[in-house]
Amino acid sequence: MSAPAPAGLAAIEGWYTLEEKPHLLGTRCSACGTCYFPKQTMFCRNPQCEGTQFEEVRLSRTGRIWSYTDACYEPPAPYVAAKPFIPFVIAAVELAAEKMIVLGQVARGVELAQLRVGMAVELVLEPLYTDERGEHLVWKWRPLKDAA
């Protein structure tokens, strides 16, 4: 187990571990081995499989950028925007082991111009928004140090 992350609440509960080196939490079908994120717990979506048993799995916490962009306009609710709105970078990242592409924001301080398709990134936790209960953390992608 890695060290706990700085105190914070999950913006979406049960979707990722609250650790310094976090993982997205998915499920794996016990019958055919297909991974799911978000979690699938009732029935397998592989048309060749009738599996109904799933185990929770930690997805790979590194992957390669499939593509990237940014959000220059304030998204509507349920996005909780800071005032004034701060634009942010977004990446779609391919997890090699799971052969799955997962979208997410890119860690603060990373410029769009630093990114390239194929670049290696890792999962981190950062605040998505802050309210009276505290900081609500979400997964974000950050280039690995040796990725350039």
């Binding site: 913006a11 499939w66 990237y68 962009t69 959000a71 998204p75 509507p76 977004i90 979208l103 979400v138």
Partner: peptide
């Protein structure tokens, strides 16, 4: 979920464009 993360329709269009 995707709106909560700030991922709007143009995000998807742009991911394909950038690729």
């Amino acid at each position: 979920v995707r709106f909560h993360l700030g991922i709007t329709n143009p995000t998807y269009f742009a991911l394909y464009a950038r690729r």
